[in-house]
Nucleic acid binder design. Structure first.
Lengths: 193, 193
DNA sequence: TTTTATTTGGAACAATCATTCCAATACAAA
DNA sequence: TTTGTATTGGAATGATTGTTCCAAATAAAA
């Protein structure tokens, strides 16, 4: 009986994610969203609830998408060292290509909305825990396979590389000199030798 | 002849810095500043120009203060390895003590105001260049002193540790487990051996 | 075709935003 | 003490904020 939606819910969420990613939560107004997403105010509120709810959904969407990409990248690569190198190289490549310097949505959100937003803070803690585990398990896999010396501590090495990855996402916003960062990453990854 | 100011200009700038540092640029309103700084709107505009100008001055004040602290810390310490360890330990300690999770004002500003604010972007590029040089020169000093193997590349090692430092400032906003971070830092600094 | 549930366009809302303005104030020089 | 100038308190400004509301439009089921 009812009238059908004139837009694709997922498609619009993707666009909202990109806008929040680029401008952050506070600098993105409902008017910005209405204009950019090409949907009506009422539709936005009816479908997503409001600005904060839409942001949370956009953020969740980023986490899901990005998490899957990294997981796939790690699984696909036989060599753990190679897998990590590809991950970092990809981050550098993205920062060079991305003219508007969006950086990493997770990092941007953490620095903008903590302290203050408890919902986001919890999501970020959950996300960090998962990411760290992903790194650490991957390092452990390299140790088990004999690719990485068994003298290494998977936990501290994994956390170190994860921290380095976050640092790269910050610096990528300020300047993007791929060569500089490539040698920096190489240096960081030499910890696996 | 004229009436004298009823507040200390530097003192108020310090307070403004702390508020912007904690809440970020967009989430801090003029009303917040007027309440927190305990000065009148007119005085704020008359003395500092406006919100954006006040932010720029507060940011500059942070850069100056923080830069001097790190520089002094490095100079005071004879051992370069020890100097770096103290720097990282201090960052960890601060993140534990700081209940409101302000993190690093430079990192917060970079992720919030890039892209968009060209003035801040330039200040951040200048700041990053100086900081990287500070790290690299310090590593080089360690190499020259024979404390760090001369086989090491000061530029890539310095940039690696600077990136790690930035990553730590991001993660410190999300969770603060000092032990976890201490072993992570130790792992990162092992690159100097 | 009629009915009915939902979406849609756009006006309207109150709250808050950064900024301006001005009369009242207060201080240092005359 | 008087004078002149910068500061101060607080109201007022207009723009923008997020959100709500409702009549008009629409499309699937009856």
């Amino acid at each position: 009986m009812p009238r059908t939606k004139q837009f694709d819910e997922k498609e619009v969420l993707q666009k909202a994610m990109e806008l929040f990613w680029e401008k952050g939560f506070h600098a993105t107004s409902i008017q910005d969203l209405v204009s950019c997403l090409s949907i009506n105010r009422a539709s936005l509120y009816d479908t997503y609830g409001g600005k904060e709810e839409l942001f949370n959904q956009a953020f969740q969407h980023y986490r899901t998408t990005n998490g899957a990409i990294v997981r796939t990248l790690f699984e696909k690569e036989n060599s753990v060292k190679k897998g990590l190198k590809v991950l970092f190289d990809k981050a550098i490549q993205q920062s060079v290509q991305d003219e508007c310097k969006k950086g990493c949505f997770v990092v941007n959100t953490a620095t903008e909305l903590i302290p203050g937003d408890e919902t986001i803070h919890k999501a970020l803690m959950d996300n960090t825990e998962n990411s760290q585990k992903l790194f650490i398990d991957y390092i452990q896999k390299g140790i088990d396979a004999g690719e990485i010396p068994s003298s290494k501590n998977a936990a501290s090495v994994g956390l170190m590389l994860f921290t380095l990855y976050n640092g790269l996402q910050v610096l990528a916003k300020i300047e993007t000199d791929p060569d500089k960062y490539r040698s920096m990453v190489e240096e960081g990854l030499s910890i696996l030798d």
